[in-house]
Nucleic acid binder design. Structure first.
Lengths: 81, 81
DNA sequence: ATTATTTATACCCTAATAGGTATAATTTCA
DNA sequence: TGAAATTATACCTATTAGGGTATAAATAAT
């Protein structure tokens, strides 16, 4: 079972943006329409999530999931499987 | 039911990169370890997919899913729900 | 220190993804 | 042309994500 990774790009992005707006996890889940539990799994870096749920949250920040060159944080995490 | 969108950033990326390397869908599924049917759903823009499966394919191209500002193609598609 | 708020973990249930396979449509190439 | 290869669609099943909720831990505020 792949390990969770709080430092993956998606988790980091959501946590930062949410805090920038001084929102609680509950408020974010409420305004975006996803479950509170999902916001938590998202921010804590659960390995396997559904893209449209993530995009449902990202849309609130004017963002969406797209392919990008692998980040250092991810590269580091790849070794630890 | 959300409509499929062949022009979403992920589908476009995979199709282009695969063709650049002159690989068939079967070869891509075989080398990345995901199902052939998944590669097809991916390239044809199925709305809801699992992130780790997508990343399993993107890794082959040195990429991963990250949040990015919404593209025009996506913005156009948003209106059509 | 105490309380209130926020975040994290655990459990059950339903719905939907991904896989496999078979078949049809489309494209490629001799 | 016609055959082979590639891509697309359809059906069935097992696995698992996501929702809800309850509880525990951690953080913030007074």
């Amino acid at each position: 079972m792949k390990t969770w990774n709080r430092n993956n790009p998606i988790a980091q992005f959501i946590r930062k943006r949410r805090k920038d707006l001084n929102l609680t996890q509950f408020e974010l889940s409420d305004t975006t329409g996803v479950g509170l539990r999902f916001v938590r799994e998202l921010e804590q870096g659960k390995p396997n999530l559904m893209t449209d749920k993530i995009n449902q949250v990202l849309l609130f920040f004017g963002h969406e999931l797209t392919p990008n060159p692998i980040s250092d944080a991810t590269r580091r995490n790849l070794g630890e499987q």
